[in-house]
C-alpha cells in the first residue's frame, strides 16, 4: 500500500511537467496576464521536481516548501493583480502579498522551523487565494469585466477554477491533518496525501486547459 501511495505521488508530478512545458513553448505568444502565470508554473515545476529529488535522496525538502509558499503566493498575487486590474486596487493586492510575505518569514524564523511542515503559512495562503479566486469568479460575471478581459475570460476561468479547487482541498487537508494524525491510522494519513496529489493533478490539468484555451490571436 505504501508503494501505491508513493507511485501516485510520483505520477502526480507528470501534469506539472506537461503544463510547464506547454507554458514554455507558448510563452512568447502569451498575453502579459498569462506570462505572469506561466512564471508561477515554471517556479512550481522547479520546486516540485527539486523536492522530489530531495525526497528520493532522503533529504528534508521542507526548506523548499517554505520558500515556495512565499514566492509562489507573491506570483499568484501578481497574476490576480493583473486579472483584476482596474477593478480592484493594486495597492490592496500588493499590501496583502507583502503582509503575507512578512508573516511567512516570521513563521519560518520563529514559529515553524524551516525543517518542519509550515501548516500555518499554507493555511493562510489557501485562505487568501480562496478569497482572490471567489472574487474573480464574481467579477467575471460582470459585463464590464467580461468586456475588458474578452479574449482571456475562458483561460482565466479555468486557471481560477484550478486554484480554487486545489486551495480549498488544501485548506481542508491541512486544517484537519492534526485531527487525522491524532485519531486515525498512519495509512489513513498517507491517503490524505494521495487525495492532495489528486487535487494537484486536477489543478494542473485545469491550468493546462486554461493555457490551451487562450485566445490564439
Amino acid at each position: 500500500m505504501k508503494d501505491f501511495s508513493k507511485y501516485i505521488i510520483i505520477i502526480s508530478h507528470v501534469p506539472i511537467l506537461i503544463t510547464s512545458c506547454y507554458a514554455l513553448i507558448t510563452f512568447r505568444k502569451q498575453q502579459t496576464i498569462l506570462k505572469v502565470f506561466s512564471c508561477f508554473l515554471f517556479l512550481s515545476y522547479l520546486v516540485q521536481f527539486a523536492s522530489l529529488l530531495f525526497w528520493f535522496n532522503r533529504m528534508n525538502n521542507m526548506p523548499l516548501l517554505h520558500a515556495y509558499v512565499g514566492i509562489g503566493f507573491l506570483m499568484l498575487a501578481l497574476f490576480y493583480k493583473k486579472v483584476l486590474e482596474g477593478f480592484i486596487s493594486g495597492t490592496v493586492i500588493y499590501s496583502v502579498a507583502i503582509a503575507f510575505l512578512i508573516f511567512t518569514v516570521l513563521n519560518s524564523l520563529f514559529v515553524q522551523s524551516v525543517l518542519t511542515f509550515n501548516s500555518y503559512a499554507l493555511t493562510l495562503e489557501s485562505v487568501l487565494l480562496i478569497i482572490f479566486s471567489l472574487t474573480t469568479y464574481i467579477l467575471l460575471l460582470d459585463k464590464t469585466v467580461k468586456e475588458k478581459r474578452k479574449s482571456l475570460v475562458s483561460s482565466i476561468n479555468w486557471i481560477n477554477s484550478g486554484i480554487f479547487i486545489y486551495y480549498v482541498s488544501n485548506l481542508l487537508i491541512f486544517y484537519f491533518s492534526g485531527y487525522f494524525s491524532r485519531y486515525f491510522s498512519l495509512e489513513f494519513n498517507r491517503y490524505t496525501w494521495v487525495v492532495h496529489s489528486f487535487f494537484s493533478v486536477v489543478m494542473y490539468t485545469f491550468f493546462f486547459i486554461g493555457l490551451w484555451r487562450r485566445a490564439k490571436n
Binding site: 478569497i131 472574487t135 464574481i138
Partner: peptide, 12 residues
C-alpha cells in the same frame, strides 16, 4: 473568507 470576498466586492 466570506468577509474578504465581501470587502473586495465593495471595492470593486
Amino acid at each position: 473568507i466570506a468577509m474578504g470576498v465581501v470587502l473586495l466586492m465593495q471595492q470593486f
